[in-house]
Write a protein that binds this DNA or RNA. Structure first.
Lengths: 242, 242
DNA sequence: GTAAAGTCAAGAGCAGTGCTCTCTTTTGTT
DNA sequence: AACAAAAGAGAGCACTGCTCTTGACTTTAC
């Protein structure tokens, strides 16, 4: 077993290092083009031009345009995940409401900073492109996992008030789905609150999407920061996070 | 002033009728392509092929690809608006909660029926395309207008319970925006409820977008209808719609 | 050392796109 | 029937993703 033959994991050969660097450059340039012209207009030829190389050469590193999209997708998911993790970890573990607000603000701030990346993750699916689940689910679930774990921790700590407003019944078919989620993630939160947690999740991204995608008119809302803070406050209330 | 010369408004000449018919055909074929391949892949050449005409000929009817997108945008907004209107009008005027649920279900049903159109309206903006506000704002605000008018009517009728949960303060900057909205639309609903109404609006479309855009995993939720109904129920509760 | 194997960039080429231009044909009006 | 406006055809430009072949270079093996 010659060591040099399968050094892929331990000692990267100069060739492998150069290759990895080139791929990193391609992803970096791809992100620039994504930010400037959007996902649908992402062009391998343009990236190749910026890389100072002929178009066919990039196919040595990236199988196809879709493969580049996948790389950018994973990159973006992880950047968002890192931003959320940093914001949440900056607060004490038992500050559940604070952590919820921090998570929401982190998502919004990142989305406004990188609207094209946000659109790639949470906007309309790119036509003809199907994200490979085995590579994207793990980074793609970081935020929601963080959100739900915070809820569960709050519930375990007895820090969750009873959900306000009229009780909304959870039908059996939905309860089955929620039970599967609860068991897979090891949650103690009751059905009613898991369902409300899902609503909070979708509502959070709904609010951010409306802002990033320009669904609010051009000048309907000047105080968008305050509007979002208010929305977070109401959402926190609906799950009993004081 | 020869009458035949400016008959544009009164008596359409055969030529104008043929022209209007061709434009309608182009929009129809455009919608088919939109549904099949998505907005970014909408191709004037393909539409021309289906129309049985050479590509340059369609430019006699549609200025550019973006113009066709605008036509499709208005078409879709009006179709959604019609669907919502029909669903809401089917219930008595004073059934405010029922009308809210009907509106939500109508939006979701249309979105699931026409995912590509929904993506065009509420998904990531098409890169390089800017919707002409003077042509799209009126049809684009039909749903939210319907939503907010129903809220206001419920409030006027005294059918709105006090918002549940902890009171969330509305900061002055946000209150200014809300005041402008209130005066423009002639609303009587107080600030706190207008703000919550905005949250309900964004949350409704957030939930629909997550489902249409496949943000729920492939098999996380089987009972999506029930999930959405539950979400509508909780949202209705947050604005005091029993 | 030298030869084989592996890697990479370049360029041509295919099929597609949006869009413009010119030329010819159709068609409604007078 | 004559005319002008409208519509279609076709060529052409610059661009896209992607494939294939060719030639050069680097690493590995004997």
């Amino acid at each position: 077993m010659p060591a040099a033959k399968q050094a892929t994991a331990k000692a990267p050969t100069p060739r492998e290092r150069a290759r990895a660097q080139t791929i990193a450059d391609i992803v970096r340039l791809g992100r620039e083009h994504l930010a400037l012209h959007g996902a649908a207009a992402l062009s391998l030829r343009a990236v190749a031009r910026d890389l100072g190389v002929v178009s066919s050469a990039v196919y040595r590193y990236v199988q196809s345009r879709d493969e580049l999209l996948t790389l950018l997708l994973i990159d973006a998911y992880n950047e968002l995940g890192d931003a959320v993790d940093a914001a949440v970890d900056a607060l004490p573990e038992d500050d559940f409401a604070g952590r919820f607000h921090a998570l929401g603000r982190a998502v919004r701030a990142w989305a406004l900073r990188e609207p094209a990346c946000y659109a790639l993750l949470f906007g309309s699916p790119v036509p003809g492109y199907q994200a490979p689940g085995e590579r994207t689910t793990v980074p793609g679930t970081r935020v929601v996992l963080r959100l739900v774990r915070n809820f569960d921790a709050a519930h375990r700590a007895g820090a969750l008030a009873a959900p306000p407003g009229p009780a909304v019944v959870v039908p059996p078919a939905l309860a089955a789905d929620l039970a599967a989620i609860r068991s897979e993630l090891g949650l103690e939160v009751p059905d009613e609150l898991v369902a409300r947690g899902v609503l909070v999740w979708t509502s959070l991204f709904g609010a951010v999407s409306f802002e990033v995608f320009g669904q609010y008119g051009a000048d309907t809302f000047e105080a968008r920061e305050e509007l979002f803070a208010h929305q977070l406050g109401v959402l926190a209330g609906t799950v009993g996070l004081a």
